[in-house]
Design a protein around this nucleic acid. Structure first.
Length: 717
DNA sequence: GCGATCAGGT
DNA sequence: CACACCTGATCGC
């Protein structure tokens, strides 16, 4: 929870996300998003009074935030005092002191924050320097590098201070599965359940807060099932959301709530009261979105955990993980950083210890630090969001780093035409491994801070885990093991392969982006190789493997209110607050659609991170797609393509065999981790050490296994 | 009666 | 583990 006091040191005349106490005297207010902990004092009588006596005081926020806020009658009195600022559009604001007439100009730019609909970061530029207030944010690695307006020319702006969302700024939250992984895990679970019969319904046990909309949208898009919610009037001007939610209870996906909804559920009743449909009792499972995280060295990420007979938890995070935070900050590299949040059990000092080294004000001349080897080969090309390595010896001047060249970004930018052109040639490679998804998973795994390493005994461990699965590991996708679901999966697999073969889509972009990314960042090469290699190298005996899903999907959560008329919903698109023309920015599509009951599994390996994801729908200058635009457009575009191709949609597949992957890859992984700038656990590489090659390592492992002494081969000091 | 705060719950 | 919210109790105005 935010403990930000509302004001930044550089511009004390503005208040952000806090509206009580001293903030009552602010000359301008800013609201980053519509979560209650960022709205303290916003409806207090004291502030209301102040507004009534003022012509000048305004509240600035994104159009979506304004819309959401004003939907509540409690905030209606703000109506004439809110100014919606278009995202990524620098705006000059005069801060006038109404009593003294004193005036100060400031430029503010809203940047998408990926936290919930309408969520933004504020970039302030003025006489006292450039300040970035992140609000709450979830940005995948590399996203900062793609934000045009964080740059000036080709370099990152000189940012004095960052006020940072440090919710998960603790190494124990090292990795949180990407939005796509989580989304697709949920998707496949919901798909498998709801496809059994129409009486199989899912209750998404979501909190009463904005932020789950992209989940609803994507489930609805993929499965053609709208999501039942208690209220949807706040989305009345956001057709891309509105279309996918409903107040009609006769649907198979529910996200409705009730004060005692857990009791409802226990009584086989949905929070909305539904318990049967046309006389037939419903079969309900619940899925509770929860944040799951993984320590640095965990080897697998199960994004779905079965917690009971018919209850599941699904990974879902509104906030950036530790590694994402570090990536972000080390790219921005401000002079100062101030945490907005104290992570659980953490102290300010502890957080600062982590953050300070990523700032320019930090003098690191005490001890020499070496560039980890992994970065050497990509110093010029890597993903610029990578952490500090290549600045290790640099002075402040160099902290303004080149952003990703526009052209490159353009390539990552989904564009339907380009996509279809490229698609076929590209997608095969990254989509060659498919697996029926049957996810075995243990609650322990998911909520554990897995520091256990994925070293040499991976195979053994895997065996062990499979044994465990007999006991406490559950089969997620066939909650009620029955022939139906099982055969369903199998059939699906082949379908999917077919469709993947025919339909240009997700994978095309994946590949496309991979190419893009890989020119900057070797990680993707690795994951790409992994994805391709895993299947042939390690096949599961029964074609069913312990897995997590990943796949398509986008969705940055920050949003505009926007139109996007396409296909089926033109009729709903008539109310539009803002027009963000971004067609051409939109699609990297890859949505399954239509009748496809694809089941895809992705064995995901933690260290791979979410790199590929980032590239797919990055905010790209002014034409950046908003989450919903993207979601919508993706669908429609894909639909079109599917129609053209005459095939069912496809789902993206990127398999990385977790369990196995790693004997041969361990060194790479290690290196990658190092190179991504996590400095918590690793022992720094010896400066001129060579990276062991997989074959060499294999040799070493063999010797180790045989009890031979390998020390003679390596110089040990 | 209202709001702020805290405890407790999900 | 923690988020973001709700409810209910208590306190002060």
């Amino acid at each position: 929870m935010s403990r930000f006091g509302g004001r930044v040191r550089e511009y004390p005349a503005v208040s952000i996300d806090r509206f009580d106490h001293d903030n009552l005297r602010a000359r301008a207010y800013f609201l980053s998003h519509c979560h209650k902990d960022h709205m303290k004092g916003l409806r207090a009588p004291a502030l209301k009074r102040r507004l009534e006596g003022s012509l000048k005081v305004k509240l600035y926020c994104s159009p979506v935030t304004k819309e959401l806020l004003l939907t509540s009658w409690k905030y209606k009195f703000w109506e004439n005092h809110i100014v919606a600022l278009e995202v990524e559009t620098p705006t000059q604001i005069s801060l006038v002191d109404e009593t003294s007439g004193e005036k100060e100009d400031i430029e503010v730019t809203l940047l998408p924050a990926g936290h919930c609909p309408g969520s933004v970061m504020f970039l302030f530029e003025g006489e006292n320097g450039t300040v970035l207030y992140t609000g709450d944010f979830r940005l995948a690695k590399g996203e900062a590098a793609r934000m045009e307006l964080l740059h000036s020319g080709t370099r990152v702006k000189d940012i004095q201070s960052v006020y940072l969302d440090t919710t998960f700024c603790d190494p124990k939250f090292y990795h949180i599965p990407s939005r796509e992984e989580c989304l697709n895990g949920i998707l496949e679970l919901v798909r498998s359940w709801t496809s059994l019969t129409r009486y199989h319904v899912v209750w998404l046990n979501c909190k009463a807060a904005y932020g789950y909309e992209y989940l609803f949208i994507n489930l609805s898009e993929e499965l053609g099932i709208k999501v039942h919610v208690n209220k949807l009037d706040m989305f009345r001007n956001m057709p891309e959301i509105l279309y996918h939610v409903t107040t009609d209870r006769r649907t198979q996906i529910h996200a409705c709530r009730h004060p005692r909804d857990d009791d409802c559920f226990r009584g086989n009743r949905l929070p909305c009261g539904m318990t049967c449909q046309s006389g037939t009792p419903l079969h309900i499972i619940s899925i509770k979105p929860s944040t799951m995280w993984f320590g640095e060295r965990i080897k697998k990420t199960n994004v779905i955990v079965r917690t009971g007979e018919s209850t599941y938890r699904a990974c879902f995070s509104f906030h950036s993980s530790y590694s994402e935070i570090k990536d972000f900050l080390s790219y921005i590299r401000p002079v100062n950083v101030y945490p907005n949040v104290l992570p659980a059990g953490g102290t300010e000092d502890k957080v600062m210890e982590i953050l300070k080294p990523l700032c320019r004000s930090y003098r690191r001349n005490m001890e020499p630090r070496y560039k980890p080897l992994g970065t050497l080969k990509r110093v010029h090309q890597r993903d610029l969001s990578d952490t500090d390595e290549d600045d290790l010896f640099d002075s402040e001047l160099t902290s303004a780093r080149p952003k990703i060249p526009k052209q490159q970004r353009e390539e990552s930018r989904p564009c339907s035409t380009r996509q279809s052109e490229n698609a076929e040639g590209n997608f095969n490679e990254s989509s060659e491994s498919y697996k029926v998804t049957t996810t075995y998973t243990s609650p322990k795994v998911d909520f554990m801070d897995c520091e256990e390493s994925n070293d040499d005994d991976d195979d053994d461990e895997d065996d062990k885990e499979e044994e465990e699965s007999e006991i406490n590991i559950v089969q997620v996708l066939s909650p009620e093991p029955d022939a139906t679901s099982t055969s369903n999966f199998k059939g699906v697999t082949s379908d999917q392969q077919e469709s993947n073969a025919d339909v240009p889509c997700w994978d095309a972009f994946f590949k496309c982006n991979k190419l893009e990314e890989s020119s900057e960042n070797e990680d993707n090469l690795l994951s790409s190789a992994d994805a391709g290699g895993s299947q042939s190298l390690f096949s599961d005996s029964d074609g069913v493997s312990d897995s997590t899903h990943i796949s398509s999907q986008n969705s940055s959560q920050s949003t505009h209110i926007s139109e996007q008329g396409s296909q089926g919903w033109d009729s709903q698109m008539d109310t539009v607050l803002i027009t963000s023309q971004e067609r051409n920015a939109l699609d990297f599509s890859c949505f399954s659609r239509g009748g496809s009951r694809t089941v895809v599994s992705v064995l995901q390996e933690t260290a791979k991170d979410s790199q590929p994801d980032n590239s797919r729908w990055k905010p790209l200058g002014q034409n950046r797609p908003c989450a919903y635009d993207v979601a919508c457009d993706l669908k429609s575009k894909d639909w079109e393509k599917d129609a053209e191709a005459g095939t069912a949609g496809t789902a993206h597949v990127q398999d990385v065999l977790v369990e196995i992957s790693d004997n041969s890859r361990t060194p790479d992984l290690e290196l990658r981790r190092d190179s991504q700038g996590s400095s918590d656990f690793e022992i720094p590489l010896t400066p001129d050490a060579e990276v062991p090659r997989p074959d060499k390592l294999h040799c070493l492992y063999k010797k180790l296994a045989a009890g031979e002494n390998i020390l003679s081969e390596k110089k040990v000091s």
